[in-house]
Design a protein around this nucleic acid. Structure first.
Lengths: 298, 298
DNA sequence: CACCTCCATATCAAAATGATATATCTAAGA
DNA sequence: TCTTAGATATATCATTTTGATATGGAGGTG
């Protein structure tokens, strides 16, 4: 069986209108064509679908059975077209984002704020991971895109784009504020209690490597569960912490927090946008990608 | 939006195969046409549906959303075609028949037996009515066709076809068998206890009218609920009954039952096939109509 | 009885589709 | 590295289908 599905569309309208002439008008077509189409359909199905009269047409018992199926089918097609139109116009959709915490703070949050303002209909799901977790989630398809920080190893199946660099700095609370005017080496710094994220994060790995390059063991006294906790810990003098510069620009970011000068500056880190190679992003995700990459120019 | 539904069929197969070439083969078409169709569909929807590669194609997120709808739609279309094919080949379907009891016995039962043998997949629903009830059920659309006996008034919205005549006869049990050799008038008959169907039946009306024409009141002593009960009542000598000749041809029909000769013969009655004017019968019902009307020739 | 509406038919131009040849690209294998 | 197999993309033309218009015929309705 290989019947043109357009014939069913015509059938659908004729059945609904109970009139060939009216159906033709709805279909933006003319009555002779609709008559011909219905005749063709009946002939291909080998079965009369309508009873004709001068007052219009109505379904035969077989026509009614067919109509029940066709009606459901076309309602689904219409729903699909509707959904697609909404997604296309960014009125609806969902984005799943994997973001490391630092990348979220340094890059993503203001962009998402603007995105939400522009496209309030799009659901945004941010999974708050460490960088390796975000990369794994992307590989598994749990998220559509990831925004992470170097150091990071990108598997071949993913494509990474550097978006911006950010500079981290050492900061202390009032108890250590006497250090503020001095220019410190990492070795001196290691003599004070240090605050860092957990061992499984790229941030930890980054500082561990940085200290190791100068032959110093990196042994933080306090391990923060999230990057958000570092500034409060510093403020309460639990030790010296490392935070991106942009953290201090936030409201209350510099209250009772003192930046420290280092002899060898901390190398800058990079925020990267990552997606799966060869996979298509949804329209909503493409728009976000575009907005993220626009940051690159700045 | 006015997209050819045939495009969706192509989309459906390409999405299922994840390959334009394979889909073309399934669609009994060629790869360039399928490529062209998908491109047209994407262009009309304003949305990319597939990611192309040299190994095949796969759906974009929007394509997947659309596919979910299209898949359901096409399963319904296929189910509809399937159902129609079964009905057309008389492997499936339902007939609702309204039949008066006498019509059922005199005409319909052997036909239905044959019908069932030929088309075991068709559900047959016989509503056992009196003739007026069968006509009412047909008018209300509760049944598709009716088989009834005269006298009957056919409304303008129904079409009646006479199928066969049948002759009724008076019969008695052994207690009245002394009447067997005599030729009786209706007046004489009225002196014996009579058995008939209830007042609301056309059979009652028929005999009432018959007796009245000769100035005799028709006052049956026993009112049978169904025509089937008349012969047993007669056999047990509750009175003289009237039954169609064909009742006596059934197994056990003539046991201890004696036909009576009447001076003025009972006028023959007619079994009629009735359907709604201008309405189409289902294929299953048309076949039955055909078999019933074939009886007419005999 | 004229008129209006609705379906059926005929016909031709226009558009879509089917078919074939060919180009292009990529991964796999010698 | 070169070739080949296998996939999609493009170009083109004959064929088929569809769109449009004119017209016929059969019931209702005033």
């Amino acid at each position: 069986m290989n019947i043109s599905y357009d014939y069913y569309r015509v059938f659908y309208y004729v059945a609904k209108c109970r009139s060939i002439t009216q159906a033709a008008a709805l279909l933006l077509n003319n009555q002779p064509n609709v008559t011909r189409t219905i005749k063709s359909l009946e002939s291909e199905l080998g079965c009369t679908l309508f009873v004709r009269s001068r007052q219009g047409v109505w379904l035969t018992p077989e026509g009614e059975k067919l109509f029940e199926h066709v009606r459901i089918a076309f309602e689904h097609i219409e729903a699909g077209e509707e959904e697609l139109a909404l997604e296309k116009s960014l009125q609806r959709g969902t984005i799943y984002i994997g973001a490391s915490e630092v990348a979220l703070h340094c890059l993503l949050l203001p962009i998402l704020k603007e995105y939400r303002k522009r496209y309030p209909g799009i659901h945004i799901r941010v999974s708050n991971h460490s960088t390796p977790q975000a990369i794994a989630a992307l590989k598994n398809g749990l998220v559509d895109i990831a925004v992470v920080t170097t150091p990071v190893t990108i598997p071949k199946s993913l494509t990474s784009t550097a978006i911006m660099q950010f500079q981290e700095m050492a900061v202390c609370g009032s108890a250590f504020s006497f250090l503020e005017e001095r220019e410190l080496s990492l070795e001196e710094l290691a003599g004070f209690p240090l605050i860092c994220l957990g061992e499984h994060t790229k941030t930890y790995e980054f500082y561990s490597e940085l200290f190791l390059q100068q032959g110093i063991a990196f042994l933080p006294s306090v391990e923060a569960a999230t990057a958000d906790q570092i500034l409060p810990l510093v403020r309460n003098d639990l030790g010296i912490g490392f935070v991106p510069e942009s953290f201090l620009e936030q409201p209350g970011g510099t209250d009772a927090v003192y930046p420290l000068k280092l002899k060898s500056p901390i190398p800058p880190r990079t925020v990267c946008f990552v997606k799966r190679t060869g996979f298509a992003l949804s329209i909503a995700a493409r728009k976000l990608e575009e907005m993220i990459k626009a940051q690159k120019a700045d």
